[in-house]
């Protein structure tokens, strides 16, 4: 198993599709906090699945000045259908081509299964990883670790923290 990028590491930049005709780069979030949530696949068969849960906790993340990005190897059309079905209000990134390249750069790819780990990263205003966590693949990690990590960051002075983000792609 590869090592997850840990606290203190610079978060590798990426540009991925969020919709069939839109891309999003991590660098666009400079000056803001980002919660990057890798998950194995869309369409988990439970109502409290990880992405639906986070959808309900978005106001809490934003209270700490953080934007949430979901990321898996699913294609953009799949993400679009999933986001619509679950009424998600945040962006889902498609680590589709080359498959899993971004997950690999974060140490969060499962070669054997060809899916991303269930791995969480809190990235600070300078693009540095402030906290990371790998959950057992079958266990939804919830959001307590993310919120504890955000709470542990020095108070933010940014003005955009509570905004919807520069692009509301959900």
């Amino acid at each position: 198993m590869t090592e997850l990028l840990a606290k203190g590491a610079q978060a590798p930049d990426f540009t991925l599709h969020v919709t069939p005709d839109q891309t999003l780069s991590l660098s666009e979030f400079a000056g803001r906090r980002v919660v990057l949530a890798f998950y194995p696949a869309d369409w988990s068969p439970v109502c409290g699945d990880q992405m639906s849960l986070y959808n309900h906790i978005l106001p809490e993340f934003r209270r700490y000045g953080a934007e949430l990005l979901g990321i898996s190897v699913d294609g953009v059309w799949c993400h679009q259908a999933f986001a619509r079905d679950r009424k998600l209000h945040f962006a889902l990134l498609s680590d589709f081509e080359p498959k899993g390249a971004v997950a690999r750069s974060y140490g969060a790819y499962r070669e054997a299964e060809g899916v991303t780990e269930r791995a969480l990263f809190v990235i600070d205003e300078k693009g540095v990883i402030a906290w990371s966590y790998r959950s057992p693949i079958a266990v939804n990690p919830g959001a307590d670790g993310i919120l504890d990590a955000l709470e542990g960051l020095p108070a933010t002075e940014n003005k955009n923290g509570d905004a919807q983000g520069s692009r509301n792609v959900a």
Binding site: C47, G48, Q50, L53, G142
Partner: peptide, 26 residues
């Protein structure tokens, strides 16, 4: 209740705690 649950690691419904420890079972 909801926010307290989130901070306690509730990760879906139903989530049970037995004497304060989250009950995880397949």
């Amino acid at each position: 209740d909801f926010i307290g649950g989130v901070r306690s690691g509730v990760n879906g419904t139903p989530t049970f705690f037995i004497n304060g420890a989250r009950f995880d079972s397949p």
